[in-house]
Amino acid sequence: MQAFTKHTGTVAPLERVNVDTDQIIPKQFLKSIKRTGFGDYLFDGWRFVDEGDLGMTPNERQLNHDFVLNQPAYQGASILLARDNFGCGSSREHAVWALQEFGFCVVLAPSFADIFYGNCFKNGLLPVVLNEREIDQLFHDCGQGYSLTVDLERQQVETSAGAIFNFQIDQGLKEKMLKGLDDISMTLAERALIESFEAKHRQSQPWLFLREE
């Protein structure tokens, strides 16, 4: 996984609450057996007027010019400004892959749904929780070319005017992001611990191991 330390980029505001993962990447795109190729279909139902399907390229599609990500002001944005409960609904990790492939590195919101939040850290997309007032202010200030710097080490979001918002983050998740660590290797480093737990577990609840050969 790519490490995340500090990122400066322009911001796109998505003025909707409860944006669910079905909106982020509609289900017809989940048929792929790959981890890539989802960026073209990010927010497909909102970005395009026609109904999309896997394999279609954006050039052959009908753009919804009203949708914020299609507006010239927000082209190339890498920070998504969002509202409450972002990423709710289905557990599909494809939502995170799609956001990243589209070019987002950070999502700012007052709250995130649990599974989505966790999935972000497995892929190096940084979800940042700011309070409602701060998010309101960012929505208010956001416009063409509005940029922010997100510094994970210092847990700060800095505006180009120099205002600073601090954010909280789980220290374990922070470490992992900063170093770009791979979860599985981290856990396999504790192999002995898992094996000894498993041996005890097999003894106390043998019926959980009935299919073992």
């Binding site: 557990s91 995170v96 599974i115 966790g118 999935n119 497995k122 892929n123 979860d183 599985i184």
Partner: peptide, 18 residues
């Protein structure tokens, strides 16, 4: 619990969830 694909792989490889 429902988990994402990375966690599916994590459980496959380690039998554990973080």
């Amino acid at each position: 619990q429902g988990v994402g694909t990375s966690e599916v792989e994590h459980v496959m490889a380690t039998q554990c969830l973080v």
